[in-house]
Write a protein that binds this DNA or RNA. Sequence first.
DNA 1: CGTTGAACCTGTTTGC
DNA 2: TGCAAACAGGTTCAAC
Length: 304
Amino acid sequence: MPELPEVETVARGLQAAIAGRRIVSISLGKTDFMDDPAAIERELPGRSIVAVERYGKFLLMRLSSDANGASASHGEGSALLVHLGMTGMLLPQATSEPAKKHTHVVMLLDDGRELRYVDPRRFGRMAYLAGDVLQKELQRFGADPLAAGLDDFAKRIQARRARIKALLLDQSVIRGVGNIYADESLWKAKLHPAQLGARLTNEQASKLYRALQEILRKAIALRGSSISDFLDAEGVPGEYQRHHRVYGREGERCFRCKSFIRRAIVAGRSSYYCSICQKAPRRSRAARAKTKARKPAASRKNKV
DNA sequence: CGTTGAACCTGTTTGC
DNA sequence: TGCAAACAGGTTCAAC
């Protein structure tokens, strides 16, 4: 579920709900999605949650230094890094509230509430990181699409020969975009998902940049998209799914040209697009030759 | 470099 | 109705 707008929504909710609280104790259930469960169990109790921020699709719970003041070798301090994967939720709840199924982490806070991490599929990630290790980890990721300038954005895309869809999803290029917002922004910019990054004109790159920013901002304003079960920190679903123009609309009509929305696998992911508005890239000589050579399809298929 | 497919895990939806 | 297959917003890794 959670891409940039959803994670931003959760971060804002948590910032309002739990910033300043101290973690009294922690109890862990399943831990296979944690880098180092022992570190989490050892480091968190006694620390205060200084702030909750979004970093790409990660939530960054910044922590006060430990009792010895030894948390940080450098500026980044220490933090609990949380990735919600596809089904993760971080919910501040009263102790009296019954715990949902698949609750894997419970942090007791100093105001008597609990911060609970729920994640049925456990595709999420949780890690306690500090100092240089934290800094290194954050450096793995590309530019934030809302903070990046047009030039930086265009350069990152045009420098690569991969498909634009793959580039938008690649967190080391741009951080925070997932399948929904990639497709929505490509539709708005009238770009086919299989177009190569390096083949975008400056004008196309600029269109995509503006489309992506507009869509992300609007989605944040509407508290994200809830496809099946996304809930923010207040347990409230988002509204942006009502504004999707292509995502999940296979067989329905394009809002611009009324032709039918298609679905194809691009970069290994379901990709929704309008084949009229979003022109397929002209295939290279090499690609065409390959398809031709493969003509006797049946015999090839039967090969083990 | 870039692409593909599989793997991680559970729940829900779709199709026969 | 029932059961199995397909599919889900994410990331990572091996193999080509």
